[in-house]
Amino acid sequence: MSLVQVTEADGGSAGPASVDAEGRVDRRRLRRRTIGVGGWVGAGVLTGVLVTALIGPLTGGDPLAQNFDAILEAPSAAHLFGTDELGRDVFVRVVFGGRTALAITVVSAVVASLLGLVLALAGALYGGWVDALTSRLADVQLAVPSIVLAIVVLSFVGNSFVPIVFVLVLGSWVLTFRVIRGHARAVVQQQYVEAARVAGAGRLGIARRHLVPSVLPLLAVAFTINASSALLLESSLGYLGLGVQPPDPDWGQMVATGQAQIFTAPWIALFPGLAVVATAVGLQLLGDGLAERFVGGPVTRRGLAR
């Protein structure tokens, strides 16, 4: 199954609840809405993860430093999260693993969101074969399970940064595309867009002045969901040994390594596992909060709900 299952957003709607019929953001309605407690919790968790990842290296720890005199040591003051089978400090590896995971996740989510946005706007503006082609591309992508595609590509291309980002983008751009396309198609049928067209505005002008501002809130929401999907897929690849390669730390890879020792040295898998769960839940909560504020409902992995 694809990690990102998307259905068409409600094409008959003029757009998110906080966007009026002319595509303008209704700031009064927006002010009435907040991202909610969940959203703030999500934002807090993500901030914590980001700050830890950013300042972690300042602690001077080396995620690759091996110490064969201190293998499989339980958490202690010297090693907050214990040590692994090579005597490496699990805390330091979780912190540095977060940098890798977040970098890959953010880059993948940005590229996937931009790709989805561009294809969706092109489909909405040009219609006809362009829309048909982009939609069929999305259908094809949905038909191929992301994880299977990733395994095949990475097995034979190698597992450096660019191929990993490539498979993550392939696995998650459809969500943005589907959500944005449905809304954008509705907007281009609005009278004010028609009026702009009659007044001589070109497609790019319409996209810049009307479509992009209108879809930005949706894009923000889709981005968080994309990021969550990308993080989970990246962790899955690491777990399968196809993500970031050892000895560089990676959360999924650390969970896989520690799995066989879950009964004797649970800290090896537990802490990176918790890090993945916290970050993914944080992204989901923030996404739900943003959706509540901008859209008036959730943009789930299944699309824009009405």
């Binding site: 299952q5 998307v6 259905t7 957003a9 409600d10 969940g38 999500g42 769960v277 839940v281 989901q284 909560l285 739900d288 959706a291 509540e292 409902g297 959730p298 789930t300 299944r302 699309g303 824009l304 709900a305 009405r306």
Partner: peptide, 21 residues
């Protein structure tokens, strides 16, 4: 898929995710 069509699930979903985690 099928889009999530009823609001209640909107608010419950994070709770379910957290609980499952």
């Amino acid at each position: 898929g099928k889009p999530v069509t009823h609001r209640p699930s909107v608010r419950r979903r994070p709770a379910v995710v957290v609980a499952l985690a």
